[in-house]
C-alpha cells in the first residue's frame, strides 16, 4: 500500500460543494424583516418659522400671505396691499379640490409686480387638514423661496 504522501495528485482530488443553504436562510429572514418593517418611513424636514402672534404680524411685513379657507377657497394677498385675490376651489372627480396651481399663479403675478416680496406666510382655518397645508406650502415653494407657517 502506498503512503498517502506518495499518492498522485489526481488520486486524492475530491469534488466538494459549499453548503450555502443556511446562508440562503439568513438572507430570506433578513429580506423578510426589512420588507415587513416598512412602517419605517424616511422623513424629510420642512422648517416652520414659529413666532408669537405679535411677531408673526411683524414678520408679515414684506411678504405674501396665503390663507386657506375651510370652503377650499384660497386668499392670496401681499402685505403691501390689502386687496385679496380669491382663488376659488376647482371641481375634481371626488368633489371640490384646492386650486394650488391657481394659487401659485397668483403668487407669481404678485411677485412679478413687487419683486421685493421674497417670502410667504401660509395660514389656514382650523378645519383645514395638515395634508392640505403642506400641499399649499409645497406649491408656494415653487414660486417663493421661503414659506413659513403662520396664524398662531
Amino acid at each position: 500500500m502506498k503512503r498517502k504522501g506518495f499518492l498522485k495528485h489526481s488520486e486524492y482530488e475530491q469534488d466538494f460543494e459549499l453548503n450555502i443553504a443556511s446562508v440562503i436562510d439568513c438572507f430570506v429572514v433578513l429580506i423578510a424583516f426589512i420588507l415587513i418593517s416598512s412602517s419605517f418611513f424616511s422623513i424629510g424636514i420642512i422648517d416652520a418659522e414659529v413666532a408669537g402672534a405679535s411677531e408673526v404680524a411683524a414678520s408679515d411685513a414684506g411678504s405674501l400671505v396665503v390663507e386657506l379657507k375651510a370652503d377650499h377657497s384660497i386668499l392670496v394677498r401681499s402685505s403691501e396691499s390689502p386687496k385679496n385675490e380669491r382663488i376659488l376651489p376647482k371641481q375634481a372627480a371626488k368633489g371640490i379640490a384646492w386650486d394650488f396651481e391657481g394659487m401659485a399663479a397668483a403668487l407669481k403675478a404678485m411677485k412679478e409686480k413687487s419683486p421685493e416680496l421674497k417670502s410667504a406666510v401660509v395660514m389656514a382655518d382650523n378645519a383645514v387638514t395638515y395634508r392640505d397645508v403642506m400641499a399649499s406650502m409645497e406649491a408656494a415653494k415653487k414660486e417663493v423661496s421661503s414659506v413659513n407657517l403662520g396664524g398662531f
Binding site: I43, I46, A48, T129, Y130, F152
Partner: peptide, 28 residues
C-alpha cells in the same frame, strides 16, 4: 396628514411658548 390645522397650531403654540425656537415639520 389628517390632523386639523387647529391641533397643529396648538402644538406649535405650546412649543413656542416653552422656548422651542427651532421647530421643524417632518414629512414623508
Amino acid at each position: 396628514a389628517g390632523a386639523p390645522y387647529e391641533t397643529i397650531k396648538a402644538v406649535l403654540s405650546s412649543a413656542a411658548s416653552e422656548g422651542y425656537n427651532d421647530i421643524q415639520l417632518a414629512v414623508a
